[in-house]
Amino acid sequence: MTTAEVGAPGNRAVGVVPFTDAVYRSCADAPPGSADCVTVGGVARPYEIGKFEVTVEQWVAFLNTADPSGSDPHGLYDETESSSAWPKYGQINFSGSAQPGRHYSVAYPQWADKPYGFANFLRAARFVNSLYNGRVISKTTAQSGDFRYVSYRVQLSGRTENGMYDLSDPNAVRTHNTGFVVPSQDEWIKAAYYDPRGGGTFSYWKYPTNPGVFGDGDATAPQTTVLNPTTGDVTNASTQPLASYHADGKPAPSWCPGQVSRQACATVNPLGLDPIAYAALYQGSLSSVGQALTPSPWGTFDQGGNAVEWTDTITPPPSGGSSVRVWRRLHGGISNSSAYQMWPSAVGLQPQDNVFFNHAYPWLGIRIGVIGDLTPCQPQ
């Protein structure tokens, strides 16, 4: 796992009104009637956040560690994720007859470096617990221009139900001050938008790829990726800034594994949608991590577009209603949707265990974080 160091502790937060094209010095400056304004982006301490999204290859390694018998007691896998059930989006295949620890495999080699796209928060937390309970074999740091990165080699653990998060509690929060985490909303937003050099508006960019101009709609949005039609690799990385999203008036970035027929990719889906409805609803595809080559102010990649990502921030349900379910914030936009989902105000939310959502929405990703001073072989 490689992370980007995020400094400037105690940075100023900004106010945002969900899904509006603006940031404010504080919610007191938001327009009258903006009762849903929230303050985001301020983080008191240094931390680290994933340089890239968690990839399919990394997730498969976790599945085979956490579920060596293939019995899947914690709902880490769904048949929807298979290449037979969903030729265009199926990332991971399961074999019940495989040897212990080998039941799960990357569906096609092209998927290995794509973001895992079928996460819910509980899956993300279990992945983090596996890292937390594992053994940190090595830790190395590197400087790349203005950015500092930390690379960890971790031997994963099969213990997933406690660690950083005690999943016996539906309202699970961090239980330790050092270790791997699912980033909070503020940590995620700071890494994506906060410019320590003072660029943007109140030091916040409009997109994780470039400062943009608040109030101009998508006029200063990044360009959209073009993907190799059979591998999903980005082919126009020389065009900067760049992100994998569906720009208005342009085709969504899309690909289909070369091993699959075009007809199967265009028609076969686990939801039973007819080809016309399927083509309208499912256009964008996930691209290889980092290949858009456009960094955030802290050197992360793909925080704009590609897969929307979970945070561990618990939030009230929509419209202030009551709910027995636990809701958490997500952020980042997706390859299937417009530029507005990449704004800092795009503070989406979903139930942490929305089975239908992660069954039918193949753009749900994970980016890990690190808090405290995590050292090799440190007992956790």
Rank of each mutant, 00 (worst) to 15 (best):
P9R: 06
A243H: 05
V226S: 11
L293W: 13
G217F: 02
Q341P: 05
L76I: 00
R25C: 00
S203K: 10
W255G: 12
P297C: 04
H331G: 03
V213Y: 05
L293P: 00
Y108M: 15
S288L: 13
F180L: 14
V226P: 00
S337P: 05
V326G: 02
G33W: 03
K250T: 14
D248P: 00
V308K: 10
G50D: 09
A44M: 12
A13K: 11
T55W: 09
S319L: 07
A44W: 07
H103V: 07
W86L: 14
I314K: 03
T220H: 09
S244M: 07
A277N: 12
P351I: 01
S335P: 08
W327S: 01
P241E: 06
D312Y: 07
T294H: 02
A292I: 07
S157T: 04
Q303K: 06
K190M: 08
D67K: 00
A98E: 11
N210M: 10
A346P: 05
A125K: 03
D353W: 00
S144A: 15
A243M: 00
S138E: 11
P241W: 04
P275E: 02
F214T: 07
A266K: 12
K206E: 03
G320K: 05
W188F: 12
Q263A: 15
S84C: 03
P318K: 05
R126D: 09
G90L: 10
P379G: 00
G369N: 12
G15T: 01
P316G: 06
